[in-house]
Design a protein around this nucleic acid. Sequence first.
DNA 1: CATGAATGAGCCTTCATTCAT
DNA 2: AATGAATGAAGGCTCATTCAT
Lengths: 231, 231, 231, 231
Amino acid sequence: MPRAQREQQMLDAAVRVFSRCGYHASSMDEIAEASDVSKPMLYLYLGSKEALFAACIRREADRLIGAVSQAAEPGLETGEQLRRGLTAFFAYVAEHRDSWTVLYQQARAQGEPIVAEVAAARGQVVRAVTALVRRAARASVPAPRDGGPAPAGVRPDRGEAAAVAQAIVGAADALAGWVLDTGPEPPEETARRLMSVIWIGLEPRLHGARYPETECRSEHQQPECQQPEYQ
Amino acid sequence: MPRAQREQQMLDAAVRVFSRCGYHASSMDEIAEASDVSKPMLYLYLGSKEALFAACIRREADRLIGAVSQAAEPGLETGEQLRRGLTAFFAYVAEHRDSWTVLYQQARAQGEPIVAEVAAARGQVVRAVTALVRRAARASVPAPRDGGPAPAGVRPDRGEAAAVAQAIVGAADALAGWVLDTGPEPPEETARRLMSVIWIGLEPRLHGARYPETECRSEHQQPECQQPEYQ
Amino acid sequence: MPRAQREQQMLDAAVRVFSRCGYHASSMDEIAEASDVSKPMLYLYLGSKEALFAACIRREADRLIGAVSQAAEPGLETGEQLRRGLTAFFAYVAEHRDSWTVLYQQARAQGEPIVAEVAAARGQVVRAVTALVRRAARASVPAPRDGGPAPAGVRPDRGEAAAVAQAIVGAADALAGWVLDTGPEPPEETARRLMSVIWIGLEPRLHGARYPETECRSEHQQPECQQPEYQ
Amino acid sequence: MPRAQREQQMLDAAVRVFSRCGYHASSMDEIAEASDVSKPMLYLYLGSKEALFAACIRREADRLIGAVSQAAEPGLETGEQLRRGLTAFFAYVAEHRDSWTVLYQQARAQGEPIVAEVAAARGQVVRAVTALVRRAARASVPAPRDGGPAPAGVRPDRGEAAAVAQAIVGAADALAGWVLDTGPEPPEETARRLMSVIWIGLEPRLHGARYPETECRSEHQQPECQQPEYQ
DNA sequence: CATGAATGAGCCTTCATTCAT
DNA sequence: AATGAATGAAGGCTCATTCAT
């Protein structure tokens, strides 16, 4: 079996095991067995337990970011770009549960080198969203003609944009976990839920506003957008 | 020394150590030494490492929830109630960094019993926010007089309210971590940032809306609400 | 059992095992079993395998050097001082076979920290012998009256004295090993053999000179100085 | 490439690696790489790690013994024979540092089969020196005419001759190590140092005797016989 | 009540060794 | 002939946990 394929096989198994048991509770024996290779191969290919975990993180983060950034085509209007990115994110999480579990729950509890790795990946996402937020602000609000001060909140400073991005990413993470816990729903639906909160806001919605529906992707398992039973 | 006090002393030390080193990297030796008691005492009082960690989780979650729910007085208008709860949350996190680190970063990476514990605490918070969201919806939108269908999104079903609550809690968590990473700011400011996103929404803000400022609490270290430098 | 005593017990066992199997072939399991303690105790008391070995080296070297230097009383005439030191050395080796095996055969084959340790101990011995040699030279040969050059070899330069000391120590080591291999003989006899070579030299002996006998110590096992059968 | 040459190439690399890292710390991977052959070849040609080490020992011992015995021509007078042998030995060690390191430092610390191998080689040397010593004794001292007892030490019994040989070999080993440690000097000079101790003895030297110099071999790097600085 | 002393169990890692090609 | 790929076995080290005092 060629080397590259073996390596993927090992990473697949490792992600599976890490997501199920957590980093420390997963033993290299267990991962080796799940990979269907011997332990020395694991070490020969990946170096050490920590390196193996880091490799998992890197691969899964790359995949996730790739899926999201491919969906959010730069040409689109900002709101639509965000909505598509979120949809891709929720779709990815639904299809790669283990991958997301490792990234979101396991990677943050580890020591320095790994935390830095995952923080870098998350930072990449946050920066993209920050840029999106800032672009939206610039695009929609014309500069004041009379040279007076820009209306507050319209041109968010760097800190504000970053905070907004953090909130969006955090909310998306939480919703992803919620969907995994309470049962699947179409990613478009989850994205709509989130867009309703962050894009329209709660108060406008209370007076009837609603972020527009989008038809569910046909290939998804649940065509009708059923509500997950809550409690 | 009375038993209850000893126990608190142990929990204090344990939270400190767990938050610094993580669950697995913290040894009972280390915790015993930091508690200034002998290891057998630790076991006599708390039973096992896992039980000790669970006790930490429970205590810290209770404190956090207590602080938040005390701030969100039931009589208030819903938006204000949410804003105060968020402010209390960010204030608590800033003052009890270790506590939040353990709850947010460490507890989720562990095995079943502990994850269940922290999930229960989080569920309690989410339920409160869900109720708040639902109450806001009921209060602000009169039932349609003509018996026609309620406007979409106005009376969120249970799932929608829960999703909104999840998004809010997730966003708050992410912002708490962001503030810890990028440097302190008054909790009122962080709460305003989040309220701006979730309550007003992004699009209205792009046209000039802004969630109203609140004066900073006097005892806070930074009277003028400086923006953390971003990037 | 008090801590100090346990530690000696561990060192005893370790020296025994190391001398029998060599450093690398000795496992900590084996040493723990031979010490009649559990492996964690070994690590608690001695730190690591390398540290344990180093502790053995240090203790055994100290004992050996102590025995020899106690025997070579400073007041004696140099030849006698050397003879007594050698006798004490051979007696020590005969009674602490393992100790010497570890020092002479095992310690030199290890990595840096340990080799440095044993080299330091050996250096201590060599320096003592060097001083002895130099003192002997000074004492027995008056400075030339006429200011002419000292006769060659009479006042050995530092290098020469050191070389002589190295030769003596090396010869003693080899003889110690030979005695262990070929069967015991009184240490006085071995010392006399060596003194005959180095003190008198071979050539004079070839013409009948002999380093004077000394009576065997009464408590020794073999009163009559039997020759070990060779080959 | 013919088999014999490959094998020598492997042994060369093995000696180099063994002398640098020691037996256990040298891995077969490392040796294979240093030999520029694949690991299976190593096993095909040499059988096992232990066998490889034994082959190194055997080859290096043969070379060393060959060099020495070629120098000590049987026809010479005994003292001169010894001196030339020693000179050849010191020259060999200086030029084949690795070879001697493996023989002297590494081989003795190993387990039974290898220790036996090196002991056999050393025994061969010791026997040759023993014979030399005995021949010297026979040659220089006429048998007593009156049938009285031979003067003590004049006709050394087998044990005495063997002891003398051991002392000489041990002293030579120690001096070889000393020269390697303290910096090179002409082998003739080192041989003279040793001859001064064992052949003339210390006491006569203290009264001015000196083993005669021999001119340094011309090709040696340091024409003037400089003393290594000591301490 | 409180603790110094002690341990069973398990994990990461490495290496000599061998197939299948 | 020659090798890339693969592994069984074992060792150093640590830690949660418990007695005996």
